[in-house]
């Protein structure tokens, strides 16, 4: 058996979670209109959820037949599947998206761009800052004028300086 066929760290947990989710969705779909009629509102979601459950079971069966990776514990998961730079990246994006509305598009994006460039490994502060400012100016100009996108002004900023 080649190493490529070995299960990846966390793969069984992920697949089982998907299977549990499928069973839950099937239950929820049944709750829409039960077995009222074949053309009822819940029948099609029920068929889709049943397909999810069956293929999910097949995937788990196939997965359990494959050998486990030599190192498949939590440490391997965080080293291979969710390394620190990835978790940091997801955290930075989540923080950016949460701050988008209260802080506004320009300040939150500038902060995000500048800090995440450093976080992802670009150590030239000057370059990071100039690229962040220039690209934000271009994005703001293009999207608010050409694409007519209304970008968030920032509820905190609006409260402080009524514009």
């Amino acid at each position: 058996m080649s190493n490529q066929d070995a299960r990846k760290p966390g793969e069984v947990t992920f697949t089982v979670l998907m299977l549990v989710g499928s069973a839950f969705l099937l239950w929820q779909s049944f709750g829409i209109s039960g077995f009222q009629s074949w053309s009822s509102a819940g029948m099609f979601p029920m068929l889709a959820a049943a397909t999810l459950l069956v293929t999910g079971l097949l995937t788990v069966r196939h997965l359990l037949r494959r050998p486990a990776a030599p190192d498949s514990g939590a440490r391997a998961f965080f080293a291979q599947i969710a390394p620190l730079q990835l978790l940091g990246g997801v955290g930075a994006v989540a923080a950016y998206m949460l701050m988008l509305q209260p802080l506004g598009f320009l300040p939150s994006s500038l902060l995000f761009l500048f800090l995440s460039m450093r976080l992802f490994g670009s150590e030239r502060w000057g370059l990071n800052l100039s690229v962040s400012v220039a690209s934000l100016a271009a994005i703001h100009l293009v999207f608010s004028t050409v694409f007519s996108v209304v970008l968030p002004k920032g509820s905190w900023l609006v409260a402080l300086l009524p514009i």
């Binding site: 995000f112 761009l113 990071n128 999207f143 996108v149």
Partner: peptide, 25 residues
């Protein structure tokens, strides 16, 4: 272009794109 510069820019574009659908966070 180094990925460290490129990837944050793509994420900002993704955020603007998703926000533009309904102006809804």
């Amino acid at each position: 272009t180094p990925k460290a510069i490129l990837l944050p820019l793509i994420l900002v574009l993704c955020a603007v794109g998703a926000y533009a659908i309904n102006n809804n966070p």
